[in-house]
Design a protein around this nucleic acid. Sequence first.
RNA 1: GGUCUCUUGGAUGAGUGGCUUAGUCACCGGUCUGCAAAACCGUUUACGGCGGUUCGAAUCCGCCAGAGACCUCCA
Length: 490
Amino acid sequence: MEDKLLIYNTLTRKKELFKPLHSPNVGMYVCGPTVYGDAHLGHARPAITFDTLFRYLKHLGYKVRYVRNITDVGHLEHDADEGEDKIAKKARLEQLEPMEVVQYYTARYHKAMEALNVLPPSIEPHASGHIIEQIEFVDKILKAGFAYESNGSIYFDVPKYAKQFHYGELSGRNIEETLENTRELDGQDEKHHSVDFALWKKAQPEHIMHWPSPWSEGFPGWHLECSTMSTKYLGEEFDIHGGGMDLMFPHHECEIAQSTAALGHESVHYWMHNNMITINGQKMGKSLGNFITLDEFFTGSHEKLTQAYSPMTIRFFILQAHYRSTVDFSNEALVAAEKGLARLTDTYNRLLRIKPSAATSDNVSVAGLREKCEEAMQDDLNTPIVISHLFDASKSINLITDGKATISEADLAELKSTFEMVVNDILGLRLEGSAAGNNSAYKGAVDLLLEIRKQAKANKDWATSDLIRDKLAALGFSVKDTKDGFEWSL
RNA sequence: GGUCUCUUGGAUGAGUGGCUUAGUCACCGGUCUGCAAAACCGUUUACGGCGGUUCGAAUCCGCCAGAGACCUCCA
């Protein structure tokens, strides 16, 4: 099998040819959500980006094991004076068992992902289900000498690690400078250095989520679950690790340090990071309070939204930008995406009805479409270019529908299969609202009405013709006349 | 303050030395049409500022301006 996909590796800051460790098998780990609230547009970006990568790798013929975690422990809340677990806080506020919070938001996350046509990962491990493995991982780091115990908590010794390994290689940070620039800690801190981070934290009395360990009743540190679970399911070395750019430091840097300290070597070959979604030029995020949840997009129930946007519009909107660029949210941009998607949907439905001719005319360009799309995908998943090729194909399809061009049977088959492959399999866009729907009786009834209207038109009975169109329109159907007939959609 | 990134036309968003006026949306003109919608054809506006390298720069380098991300308490 020939490797031809170029991906941008954050580690080297270059596009590199993707070569799996054990071709055709590919291991991929992506940081999933912390389930203490509804998913917002920012969560959709990595989900869709890496879903597209997952789909494309499979399309290339690789056998992919895609692991995306659910974070349901840890992650302290920064605005609370006594560091408090996000999930525990939510549970306390709503008077629920923490696992009720986790269960509720995990289900809602899955629902939103399904709506966005994001494929489920191969394995979706929960941090809370891997406490034993995490304790073992801490133990390995302790035995390797890169961690110390302090009052029941275990901390990673970053300066010691940095003497042997390159701490900061991913984020381009200089450890000495970081040390110098960081203010002195007050004497009561358990950590030896300000740059150290927790591997295991002793629970305070008010903490409601805690587990027994050799060191204390407590909970695992914030970065540990990803090192542990990626190692467990993908091995000590694996191909791709993805996540949002905001996770690069400290989260991913700490992951590298943990894994390297425990295993004696690095784990990840290709680090990939998607960029952020901005709103008025500022990162959309929970901590900033400027986020819009996916459900609010789907229903239009947010003051910043002028209308509802379908999940496919959101997906299309995100795919129209390259994953390493920021995308700025606005109603205008989403409306534009909605219209563009509708145009693609229309042409797709027309494509299904095209009748082939003896030959393909010169103004139709189907040759090379498949190659052009593949080429764009292979160049670090350049989905906006792929989409622009689809619009080029749309132009040809519309010309044929208008009777201004013709296509041969072979070319038509190739065009159909390419279009479907790119749209459905790679981009994961469900083009819906088609007359080629699944209920044939209902479809036949609408066709019949429009046949009657066609007769009325032939008799210049405009009253009947308009009555049918207007009543159908009132029911939500849109009717468009074509050269020798009609087409409709709901 | 430190580190890094970004700045393209009315909106969005590709493009990294010449062959790109990318594409989408919007606007305008036209064709088609009983009307409408759609479609098609055509037109228009761009590379933050200043300097440098080069035969040639949106694309490389420097400076300036503006914006953003991260800086271990915390995605």
